[in-house]
């Protein structure tokens, strides 16, 4: 019990965020038509997320505890502002690359949606009208980019760490790219769309680039850790096909 409490306390302290605004699109910024459209798109992905969780919890032993770990990690990471001294600003990782690799991309959309909803309701972080847009960028784009880059990386022979790094990095970058596209589409007016999207995305990069690298390292490191200590979990989750010896990075 003592060890258990220590682990929980350590987890809480490690992940403890400090209050600050971070990345999500703030309440009121998206015009109603765009907010409604992104809501509609997000609902479809959340529906498939619920179905994926429902199916996999019956098929895969231990899926729910892993859902708990990944869900809470995504929630905490996505409200955990990290200072980037190059720019003197803060932003946060997404965590959806890691959850997509471990849980599946649709389930990852679901856990991101729950986290974003809590943040929008109680933490003055994001917004209810912009929730659909935020689910689409962090949940959908982050999860699918992470999952595709991980699978693609493994197909071309990358080690678990390298493929995990690619997943974390891509999840972060694609989240912000999608946010830029959403903002560009909604706000460009008479200005050229690509110019506005590029301008916003480029403005994100100095802060988000270093964090994407950090997120890549954490995601790759976590997947490698699980592979070293409990490789059968990755087999069970369909991340690797068989229990293999740990590869050199």
């Amino acid at each position: 019990m003592k060890k258990f409490s220590t682990k929980c306390l350590t987890g809480a302290l490690v992940f403890l965020p400090i209050p600050a605004y971070a990345m999500h699109i703030t309440e009121g910024i998206l015009p109603p038509a765009w907010a409604g459209l992104w809501w509609a798109v997000a609902v479809v992905f959340v529906f498939f997320g619920i179905r994926q969780v429902d199916r996999r919890k019956k098929e895969v032993e231990g899926y729910l505890p892993l859902l708990g770990i990944a869900g809470s990690a995504v929630f905490v990471l996505s409200c955990f502002p990290i200072p980037v001294p190059i720019t003197g600003t803060c932003s946060h990782p997404a965590g959806t690359g890691m959850s997509a690799v471990l849980l599946g991309p649709f389930a990852s959309v679901l856990v991101a949606s729950v986290g974003l909803l809590i943040q929008a309701l109680f933490m003055a972080h994001g917004g209810l009208t912009t929730l659909g847009g935020n689910i689409l960028s962090m949940g959908v784009a982050g999860s699918f980019a992470g999952w595709i880059f991980f699978k693609g990386g493994r197909k071309v022979g990358l080690s678990l760490f390298a493929a995990g790094f690619a997943a974390g990095f891509a999840a972060d970058i694609f989240t912000y790219l999608t946010t830029s596209v959403e903002l560009g589409l909604a706000l460009h007016g008479a200005h050229p769309l690509t110019e506005v999207i590029t301008k916003i995305f480029v403005a994100f990069l100095p802060t988000q680039g270093p964090l994407a690298v950090l997120e890549g390292v954490v995601t790759g490191g976590l997947i490698r850790y699980v592979h070293q200590h409990r490789p059968e979990i990755l087999v069970r989750m369909g991340v690797v096909k068989t229990v293999q010896p740990v590869q050199p990075v």
Partner: peptide, 13 residues
């Protein structure tokens, strides 16, 4: 939120 998230992650871990 951080404490709750950390607790849930730690418990499931």
């Amino acid at each position: 939120a951080g404490a709750a998230g950390g607790f849930i992650a730690g418990y499931n871990w």
